[in-house]
Structures are given as C-alpha cells and as structure tokens.
Simulated assay, not measured.
Amino acid sequence: MLQLLLTMVIFLAIVGGVGYWVYDYNTNPNGGQAKKEAAAVAQHEEDKTHEPKVGDCVKVQDPQGKPVPTIVDCGSAEAQYKTGEILPGEGRKCGPSFDYGIQHTASRGFDYTMCFTKL
C-alpha cells in the first residue's frame, strides 16, 4: 500500500511538472513561445530589408559571389545602386540602361531578376 502511494505521488509530481512547463512555455511573456514568435517576427523584418522594390536604394554585399541587396536610405553614403526594374521569370537579363543585375531563384518557384542603376 505504501509503495502504491509513493508511486502515485511520484507520478503526479512528474505529470504536474510537465504540465507546468507546458503552461509556462505557452503563456509566459518572456518564455519559449514568446521568444520563438519574436524571433520569427525579427527574421521576417530582416528579410524585408533584402527585398527592394523599384525606386529603393541598396547596397550590395558580396556582389561577385552570392549578392545580397540591402535597402538603405538613398541619401546615405552606403547607397550604391537604385532599383530600376524587377523582371519576373527565370534567366531574365537586364537591359543596357542598367549597370548591375541580380538573379534570384526562389525555393517556391518565383524566379526574378533585379536590375539596378549605379548612384
């Protein structure tokens, strides 16, 4: 009888601990779920800085390797190019009026080329 009671107490302690951890993970504003959601929002905001629209000024990191355009203020010293055109489709080439182009191959099938003029 005493062994059964001890087993039940240990079982309830384990279940209670796991239950509390799950509750805390999902409801604590500084806990795991909140941190996970904040990280996802921060990553989304960071990704948006690398998706210029026509008229945005950019600096290009690693222009000869895997170029990554980053949107910057057009008046800043970092600004290298201005986005002139975005051509949908795979393997598109920028026209002669542009100084630089970046081909982007998306994992979801939307390929495009970004065309830039030098500032």
Rank of each mutant, 00 (worst) to 15 (best):
L2V: 06
L4C: 02
L5G: 02
L6N: 08
L6S: 12
L6T: 13
M8P: 00
V9W: 03
I10L: 13
F11C: 07
F11G: 09
L12F: 15
L12Y: 10
L12N: 14
I14S: 07
G17L: 07
Y20K: 07
W21N: 09
W21P: 01
Y23G: 07
N26F: 13
T27G: 08
N28S: 15
P29K: 04
P29T: 10
P29N: 07
G32T: 14
Q33N: 12
Q33M: 12
Q33Y: 11
K35I: 08
K36S: 08
E37S: 09
A38S: 13
V41Y: 03
H44Q: 12
D47S: 11
K48E: 15
E51F: 06
E51D: 12
P52A: 08
K53F: 04
V58L: 10
V60T: 02
D62M: 01
D62Y: 11
P67L: 05
D73I: 01
C74I: 01
G75F: 00
G75C: 01
S76V: 06
S76A: 10
E78T: 03
A79K: 02
G84V: 05
E85N: 13
P88H: 03
G89N: 08
E90R: 11
R92I: 01
K93F: 09
K93T: 14
C94E: 05
C94L: 07
C94W: 03
G95I: 02
G95P: 11
P96G: 09
S97C: 04
S97K: 15
D99K: 08
Y100H: 11
G101L: 02
Q103N: 14
H104Q: 08
H104V: 15
T105R: 09
A106M: 13
Y112L: 12
T113K: 07
M114L: 13
C115V: 05
F116K: 05
F116R: 00
F116Y: 12
T117P: 02
L119I: 14
L119E: 10
